[in-house]
């Protein structure tokens, strides 16, 4: 028996909190899917740690939003349907191969890093950002090191890394919509790493969007089905 989904009244501030929280939760969940199947033990630890950081950030943000609108963090994560999620589409894309996972982690982490450093007026949000920026700096470095290794590696790893960057590029616009100079700053940070990885930087063209308005790819529904099935099937279940 499925539990009823919650519906929210979203002020712009709540929407900001939910966008940040959903970005972190959905990418955290995707990253956690590597657990038990990463290509090497060290990477297993790394991806699990990164997923944990992201889900931790999401929890703090859901708590901040939840206090304002009277919902628990679990309700916000488990009892909303795909159209209520505010994450950018890039977070929900399936992991693909290791190159795709690393390329996405890099492109997203650079945007997150800059976002956390922007500074926020809201006290709860700055508290989360203050912690998250240190964690995200670590994610940027880890993903960049791997992207360089893959892009500047074998012909096969280069091809896969280039494919990943090309496929992901139209999904990167949504992350830098927040401020007018955000795209330039992001490009400025991404460019040197792509260059060192000997990867071609795609031209900025038409960009995918809709995630912030709840128009998602079909992948989010599948992800949420797996993530939400337990609390929706057994409401109030505890370990």
């Amino acid at each position: 028996m499925a539990t009823t989904s919650i519906t929210l009244t979203e002020t712009p501030h709540i929407q900001t909190l939910l966008s940040l929280a959903d970005d972190a939760l959905i990418l955290g969940h995707r990253t956690s899917e590597w657990t038990g199947r990463a290509p090497l033990l060290e990477e297993e630890l790394a991806l699990a740690n990164i997923a944990l950081d992201l889900i931790g950030q999401a929890r703090a943000l859901y708590q901040a939003a939840g206090e304002l609108i009277g919902h628990s963090e679990d309700e916000l994560a488990y009892l909303r349907d795909p159209p209520a999620f505010r994450n950018a589409l890039i977070m929900e894309l399936p992991n693909g191969d290791f190159a795709f996972t690393i390329a996405r982690l890099f492109l997203v982490s650079v945007a997150s890093d800059q976002k956390w450093r922007t500074g926020f007026d809201d006290a709860a949000l700055s508290a989360v950002a203050e912690k998250a920026m240190k964690e995200t700096a670590y994610h940027v470095r880890h993903a960049a090191e791997w992207l360089i290794r893959l892009g500047d590696g074998t012909a096969e790893s280069h091809r896969r890394a280039q494919d990943a960057v090309d496929t992901l590029w139209p999904f990167t616009g949504e992350m830098t919509e927040i401020r007018s100079d955000a795209r330039l700053l992001w490009l400025h940070a991404v460019e040197p790493v792509l260059k060192r990885a000997r990867l071609r930087q795609p031209e900025d063209g038409w960009m995918q969007s809709g995630g912030r308005d709840g128009r998602h790819t079909e992948h989010l529904g599948h992800l949420l089905a797996e993530m939400q099935i337990l609390p929706r099937t057994y409401p109030g279940a505890t370990w």
Binding site: A51, L52, D53, L54, I55, G56, Q57, R59, A60, V128, K131, A132, E135
Partner: peptide, 8 residues
């Protein structure tokens, strides 16, 4: 206070 956001 948590050391890391997701400290289990």
């Amino acid at each position: 206070t948590p050391t890391y956001s997701g400290c289990p």
